[in-house]
Design a protein around this nucleic acid. Structure first.
Lengths: 248, 248
DNA sequence: CGTTTGCTTGAAGTAGGTCAATGTGAGTGG
DNA sequence: CCACTCACATTGACCTACTTCAAGCAAACG
């Protein structure tokens, strides 16, 4: 049982619903194997075929796509307890390249493990489905930021999103968190240049929205940031009331 | 049976997998009722609670979010055969406002109908899950466009996405389609102003990428547009090979 | 200890925004 | 059938948020 309780995946999913033993057994199968990655190492390349998904055990990663002329868009970030590769189960070829931000530990598992979850655990299925559509909502929030917000607002939005995600599993976290992304990477997430990210960060610092200390960021006026960016925390407040009941 | 074959939902889903009679019966339940909407009428407002989802029978609609100062982002478009409201099943409150682009017919159904699909039809569940993650991929494609592409590229991307979606159900369509969106709405989808949308459209016309005739658009050099925008058609090429088999 | 990677800062350029005027077709009431 | 309105498209002049280019610096790293 200690193995199960150590799993970030189980820990993350448990914050939403209680997991019966059948569900826990299904989830445990997803973390049977381990694979270590160095900083900047690539998990899977866009356009290649792959049968594997991954549970993130430690470290941050991101999925991105390149344009022909070198422009790059980072599409999503993965933290411990997240599953990499759901989008790819819908297609024959990987739709994005995934790269490790830092040294990382992953647990690969085959697509077919999902199949058995769909057949045997309606409750877990409902949760996975709900998380998939919740991710859609989070993408739409981000689209609102990218389409209609200034650089300052976008960066504020990103910081709020990050701290909210980290709080899912780290309930003791207050206003400070580790941000292991370079400013070029932040720009590639938000559609900005590294130069302007730097300038905007300095401004936010000067206006006392935040403090930085190396890789650490401290949000000084989170409430003001929330108001500035019209931020809504999608990581709490999920509706699980309609889920099918627990299996025996 | 003629009722079932007339359903855009069944028609759309049938292009991906064969639907057994159990699945068809489940889907038929989603279109038992009908509701008409006028142009510009609102389906549900952001922040309100709702128990209903909707199958689109005829007409276009869109979901959007407003910022405090009047800026607006259109988040997604709905066409006949699409389901409105999946994102909302994850939350207690609606995450966006949905409005009819033109006169529209919807079929409302309660969340609980999904529950029974999850329990009784693993194959349909797998399809719905796959469509949800496919939508994620489409959002990420759009994010790439919004984050890293010029106005010209973004508009090209939108036109390609639209024509590809329309081709799912209208297999005879060639290079011309009806575009009932105003330039303000197109701008609100792509993070541009109506003024610049107008200027960019004129340029695209002048460079002979397209022709316009009132509400109709004709793509003259679709291949060049695809290359320009690095477009990948996500509406074909889905992987359904891993789905659970058909029920009896 | 040289090299690389990332952050900062400034100067100059540009894609797209803002503002404002004009045109135009679709509806609507008389 | 006409006059009026209204929503939408177009166009031009001007503006600015962000980019590009370039240089200098600090920290990490082999």
């Amino acid at each position: 049982m200690s193995d199960v309780t150590k799993s970030c995946l189980v820990q993350k999913l448990s914050t939403y619903i209680s997991l019966d033993s059948v569900s826990q057994r299904h989830l445990a199968r997803l973390e049977e194997k381990e694979q270590m990655l160095d900083k900047a190492e690539i998990v899977n390349t866009i356009g290649t075929t792959t049968d594997a998904l991954y549970v993130v055990k430690t470290g941050w990663l991101y999925a991105y796509a390149d344009l022909a002329d070198g422009r790059r868009q980072i599409l999503r970030l993965y933290h411990p307890g997240d599953v990499i590769g759901f989008p790819d189960i819908a297609f024959h070829h990987a739709t994005a390249t995934v790269r490790a931000v830092e040294a990382t530990c992953l647990c690969p598992f085959p697509k077919t493990h999902l199949d058995s979850i769909f057949r045997e655990s309606p409750r877990l299925t409902a949760l996975l489905f709900t998380l998939a559509v919740r991710d859609q909502v989070i993408f739409m929030d981000l689209m609102k930021a990218m389409g209609r917000m200034s650089a300052r607002e976008r960066i504020g939005y990103l910081l709020l999103d990050l701290i909210s995600r980290l709080r899912i599993t780290n309930t003791t976290m207050t206003d400070t968190f580790r941000l292991p992304l370079s400013q070029t990477e932040i720009g590639d997430m938000l559609g900005l240049t590294n130069v302007y990210v730097s300038k905007t960060f300095r401004q936010l610092e000067q206006d006392e929205y935040l403090e930085r200390d190396g890789i650490k960021v401290r949000l000084l006026r989170e409430g003001d940031l929330i108001e500035m960016t019209d931020f809504y925390n999608r990581y709490v407040d999920m509706d699980v009331s309609w889920f099918p009941g627990q299996a025996g």
